[in-house]
């Protein structure tokens, strides 16, 4: 499994095809002749700039354009531990974010390919995690280990996030 990009500085990763339109923090609106009295939300453009996975998990979004801290307060980003669990969390978060993006941008081929590559990585990540910590799904069973699903710690317990 590839190493997490924890040492990558704040600069987001740029997609291979540069965006020549509005920029990371702006979107597209319907044409000038839009119906009256409706509020409009600019649509995020195709192939948006992204954070690294670890940055994304720390920031709370995969897309710098959507990083809008309330009252423009710059939130201190706590450093995350470099464990198999956190790596998997960062990967799964990127997958969640890309999944949501794809709901409204289903034709974005670059995003689809990236999504698919992350899903394959996550499958490896899960196997690695489960060998160390036990099942993630109720149906992840190794009969020799008994019904390990019920074993402590559960995610809310002390030691459940080590």
């Amino acid at each position: 499994m590839e190493k997490p990009d924890t040492n990558v500085p704040m600069t987001p990763s740029t997609p291979s095809m540069p965006n020549t339109s509005c920029g990371a923090d702006k979107g597209t609106l319907p044409c000038p002749c839009a119906p009256l009295a409706f509020p409009y939300i600019p649509m995020q453009e195709n192939n948006p700039v992204r954070f690294s996975r670890m940055e994304a998990l720390q920031t709370g979004t995969l897309f710098p354009g959507l990083d809008l801290p309330f009252k423009a307060a710059i939130q201190a980003k706590t450093k995350l531990a470099n464990t198999a669990l956190v790596e998997l969390m960062a990967l799964d978060f990127a997958i969640d974010e890309l999944g949501l993006y794809l709901v409204t941008h289903a034709q974005d081929q670059e995003a689809l390919q990236l999504y698919w590559s992350y899903i394959k990585l996550a499958q490896e990540g899960r196997e690695k995690y489960q060998k160390m910590y036990g099942p993630l799904l109720q149906t992840d069973l190794t009969p020799e280990a008994g019904y390990a699903w019920l074993k402590d710690p559960w995610p809310w317990d002390e030691g459940g996030n080590d």
């Binding site: 995350l80 969390m89 993630l136 799904l137 996030n161």
Partner: peptide, 13 residues
């Protein structure tokens, strides 16, 4: 709904 036995982000208080 399927439950996965991990949080989305670690909580260690």
């Amino acid at each position: 709904f399927v439950y996965e036995k991990k949080l989305q982000y670690p909580v260690k208080i």
